[in-house]
């Protein structure tokens, strides 16, 4: 069963007065971010989006999350068109994830507070999640007292606290160092494999995509649409060891094969843009 269905989703942004951009060679002051995005996502699936920078991945996530409306086309969540943020959705951003005036525990409570969950229940849920991420000793710390990896664990815990059916993750690990990043990938997959949450995860790392995904959807250079969907045929449950297997390398190769041309195309476009210096 498909929990999310995106049908011919298009998104244009009006540029500021005097700014111009080329859409398929035609000069315009509107930018085509998404150009007919079609995607069906199965319930409980881990879907990873990869694509060149500026290909509209974040824009698509915002539309699914109800933060932004498509110019045309529809996204259905559980058969209902998304027109506002839904209680079924959680969101993890790359940056500014946590509120500096709240402790780790209280940050995790944030999403539950507006939904009328009573204090004791909120604390219980938040503590369970902290312990799931090995952060029980840090519940009263403020974000600046936590490492980047810990902060992002808390941000993920906050998103999981409301038990979302759909979890949107926009490059959540991009700012972390390579080791912390692998550790968090391992933790995320361990925790996710015990839930039936549907995840849409955006990354620029092919390794990350292959390690996490059931399917990897490759997005074209702007205007973004789905170029190809690659099934990752690695067994679950997965753990870190799988990264060095030959099956992993084979999947990696497939994803890169589909992505390479788009990345080159996007780069070409930047080079042609006025003012671009290499």
């Amino acid at each position: 069963m498909d929990i999310i269905v995106a049908k011919d989703v298009r998104k244009k942004f009006k540029l500021k007065h005097g700014q111009q951009v080329k859409n398929n060679g035609i000069i315009s002051n509107e930018i085509d971010a998404l150009g007919g995005f079609d995607l069906n996502i199965k319930k409980g699936e881990f879907l990873v989006l990869v694509g060149p920078s500026g290909s509209g991945k974040s824009v698509f996530l915002d539309i699914v999350g109800g933060l932004s409306a498509p110019t045309s086309g529809v996204v259905y969540l559980d058969n209902k068109p998304v027109d506002a943020p839904s209680e079924k959705t959680g969101y993890v951003f790359q940056q500014y994830a946590l509120f500096p005036w709240r402790t780790a525990l209280s940050n995790i409570e944030f999403g539950l507070e507006s939904r009328g969950v009573v204090k004791e229940e909120r604390i219980k849920i938040a503590r369970e999640l902290l312990s799931l991420f090995g952060l029980s000793d840090f519940e009263d710390r403020y974000p600046y007292q936590l490492s980047g990896g810990m902060q992002q664990r808390v941000a993920i815990a906050r998103a999981l606290a409301t038990k979302p059916e759909v979890l949107l993750m926009d490059e959540p690990f991009a700012a972390l160092d390579a080791q912390t990043r692998e550790i968090l990938q391992n933790e995320l997959i361990r925790i996710w494999e015990g839930t039936d949450t549907t995840v849409i995860f955006v990354t620029h790392s092919i390794d990350e995509a292959v390690f996490l995904a059931d399917r990897v959807a490759v997005v074209t250079a702007r205007p973004g649409k789905i170029k190809e969907i690659i099934e990752i045929d690695l067994p679950r449950p997965r753990n870190g060891d799988i990264r060095s297997s030959s099956e992993f390398a084979a999947n990696r190769h497939k994803v890169w094969g589909a992505l390479k041309a788009e990345v080159n195309k996007a780069q070409q476009e930047w080079k042609l843009a006025p003012g671009f210096t290499d």
């Binding site: 999350g65 109800g66 933060l67 943020p85 959705t89 959680g90 969101y91 951003f93 940056q95 500014y96 994830a97 509120f99 944030f110 999403g111 507070e113 507006s114 939904r115 409301t162």
Partner: peptide
């Protein structure tokens, strides 16, 4: 991002 988080929740 704070505005967005407020909207999400």
């Amino acid at each position: 991002k704070y505005h967005e988080l407020a909207q999400v929740y």
